[in-house]
């Protein structure tokens, strides 16, 4: 039987696998503490860093479909991008034959931070990196794993503005990567798309709940067409992002000819869904939505951070342009 979407079993498995998120990663935690490194060992103990690596390598032995579903949940809970860094770092080390390094990442000994470099030699943007021992650098050249010491001249950016610690930095001139690969671009796109999809879904839920609760003119605001239509637009964005993610993840897991195209599409769709929904969620919450006490802004800001790690929507579209659709002229 040919699969095109995540199965019910896969969805249920990830639901049970991520139950601790509700308690440990309530989004409101970010009002008090913006870094998730206090939970690093927890993430390692739950096996969240190696879900798609073989059991022999210390992973859970599942595939990219399960990993995409896991990271959709991480997006919903605004889990630090460091968890994505850990997963990609372990995979990069594993693919480069450094099983010992992969193992140290998987068991939580070596916390990893996520960084983005726009071009070779350019500066990097570092996310939530204070306690990290390793840095996973995404760039148009692929995925490279560095020792944290190799990322120098760190300047803290205004942390309060983006609700997560950010630094600008650069790679030391003599820095050599522990491991690097160009082979997991589709995995990177899927994990970013998954978190952005989770953000779009969480903000839809938040907007619908508030529309049922909030009364004006003697009725829930969700009974007014203007609000209904916003919520419907948000729901369509979520449906598109979720189905695209699931379809793309299965394409990657099964190594279909067009899996890179599907993963690149998933990122473009999910990024736009996250930006649309986080903005509409703020609008639906009115004055409350504009207040720092409300969670709404946390989702918007995290969408920007993930988009930055992806290189920006412009770059994501340009990357999609380089892929071939099965409907394209040159396609088989």
């Amino acid at each position: 039987m040919t699969m095109f979407h995540a199965s019910t079993e896969q969805l249920e498995l990830i639901d049970s696998f991520t139950r601790p998120l509700e308690e440990l990663f309530a989004p409101a935690r970010l009002h008090k503490s913006e870094s998730d490194y206090g939970q690093w060992v927890t993430g390692a103990e739950f096996g969240w860093f190696g879900i798609s690596l073989p059991e022999a390598a210390g992973g859970i032995g599942l595939g990219m479909v399960e990993e995409a579903l896991l990271f959709e949940k991480f997006g919903r809970h605004l889990v630090t991008p460091g968890f994505m860094a850990a997963s990609l770092a372990a995979k990069t080390a594993y693919l480069c034959g450094d099983a010992a390094l992969a193992q140290q990442i998987l068991n939580g000994e070596l916390p990893v931070a996520m960084a983005r470099q726009g071009a070779p030699g350019a500066g990097v943007t570092l996310v939530d990196a204070a306690s990290a021992k390793l840095c996973l650098v995404l760039s148009p050249q692929g995925t490279a794993l560095f020792h944290a010491d190799a990322v120098v001249e760190r300047q803290p950016l205004d942390a309060a503005q983006w609700s997560i610690p950010l630094q600008s930095a650069r790679l030391a001139g003599n820095a050599a990567a522990h491991a690097a690969t160009q082979k997991i671009g589709a995995d990177v796109n899927l994990l970013l798309a998954a978190q952005l999809t989770g953000i779009a879904a969480a903000t839809l839920d938040m907007a619908v709940s508030y529309s049922l609760l909030r009364q004006q003119f003697g009725a829930p605001i969700g009974s007014f067409q203007a609000i209904k239509h916003y919520c419907t637009d948000m729901a369509m964005q979520v449906q598109a992002a979720k189905d695209m993610l699931s379809f793309g993840a299965v394409a990657v897991a099964e190594a279909r000819d067009d899996h890179r195209f599907q993963a690149a599409s998933a990122l473009v769709v999910a990024t736009r869904a996250a930006f649309f929904n986080t903005a509409k969620n703020i609008q639906i919450h009115g004055g409350m939505g504009f207040s720092a006490e409300c969670d709404a802004h946390l989702y918007l800001k995290r969408a920007h951070v993930l988009d930055t790690l992806a290189g920006g929507l412009k770059a994501s579209r340009a990357a999609l342009r380089r892929e071939t659709s099965i409907f394209g002229k040159d396609a088989a």
Partner: peptide
Amino acid sequence: GETLMDLRADAAALRAMSYQFAI
């Protein structure tokens, strides 16, 4: 170019939704 890439991605998402719904 950017408009076309959004359309390309959205058409891919529509195809993914159509598969899901039909199945």
